[in-house]
Design a binder for these strands. Sequence first.
DNA 1: GAACTTATGTCGGTGC
DNA 2: GCACCGACATAAGTTC
Lengths: 86, 86, 86, 86
Amino acid sequence: MAEKGHNSGASATDDRLRLLIERVERLEEEKKGVADDIRDVYNEAKAVGYDVKMMRQLVRLRAMDPNDRRERDLLLETYRAALGLD
Amino acid sequence: MAEKGHNSGASATDDRLRLLIERVERLEEEKKGVADDIRDVYNEAKAVGYDVKMMRQLVRLRAMDPNDRRERDLLLETYRAALGLD
Amino acid sequence: MAEKGHNSGASATDDRLRLLIERVERLEEEKKGVADDIRDVYNEAKAVGYDVKMMRQLVRLRAMDPNDRRERDLLLETYRAALGLD
Amino acid sequence: MAEKGHNSGASATDDRLRLLIERVERLEEEKKGVADDIRDVYNEAKAVGYDVKMMRQLVRLRAMDPNDRRERDLLLETYRAALGLD
DNA sequence: GAACTTATGTCGGTGC
DNA sequence: GCACCGACATAAGTTC
């Protein structure tokens, strides 16, 4: 073979890259699993009549700092009023 | 040359593909131009003190059917109340 | 009425906001028109047998600086080889 | 109080919604944790000289079905050749 | 720290 | 009607 040594053509550098990639792949799988779980919860919610889009909005709102959230609400109200957007 | 005829290696099919691609490219340029104009308007708005994110929200709200919008507003209020999210 | 002057409740500031919003809306319409045209070209291409996803990729590749593109291609080849990803 | 029973104003429905939301929130946290781990791996890779963008591309390629991937590669080559896009 | 690029999440359209 | 896919808006990160 062209490469010296006992491996089959993969340099140490290649292995390092491969190892990193494989770590990412395992983590990506995990992430996908969790994402699927989230989708399941939303589907369950939908099945009992909740509006998924609204729920996503709620999750976002709850993640915000309460002061920021209130400030944002207020500002939006102001702008809507300015445009007569009831 | 390998190809018969007067052209320099491009088949009629190639030209058809190229033509389609070029039409897309011209349109993409146009689109980019308009997108830039939009960004300019937002920058102008920001410069006089408006909140760009709020403005985007307003544009979306105004694009909605008024009845849908009011229904959505109401539903969100209900959900927020259910969670004690003032 | 509550507001002084001749208008019906809209301050000058409100009008400025409204004007900006309306400019954005007009531009958004334009943009949508162009986006529709692009979709039409792709549909036309699909109808004569081209793969739309590939075409999108081509448009992206052609938009890149040729040197960057070749460099990127080369690097990717190297990495793929390192992983035995033919 | 307005509501009958022992709770402090939350109906059973409200609780059901809240419970669903909280499940989502826990899962979102998990997901964020995994995403952070992924970012760490990429940072580690970058620190030893790898190109992160390329690595992301590799992960995507490896996730594809090998046959699909080869077919896609081939088709793209064909199209690039048709456009003289070396 | 401000602008620009890249990554992620959401949304709407399309095909099954 | 639902799932997939592409497009857009937002958020994070990078560079000057």
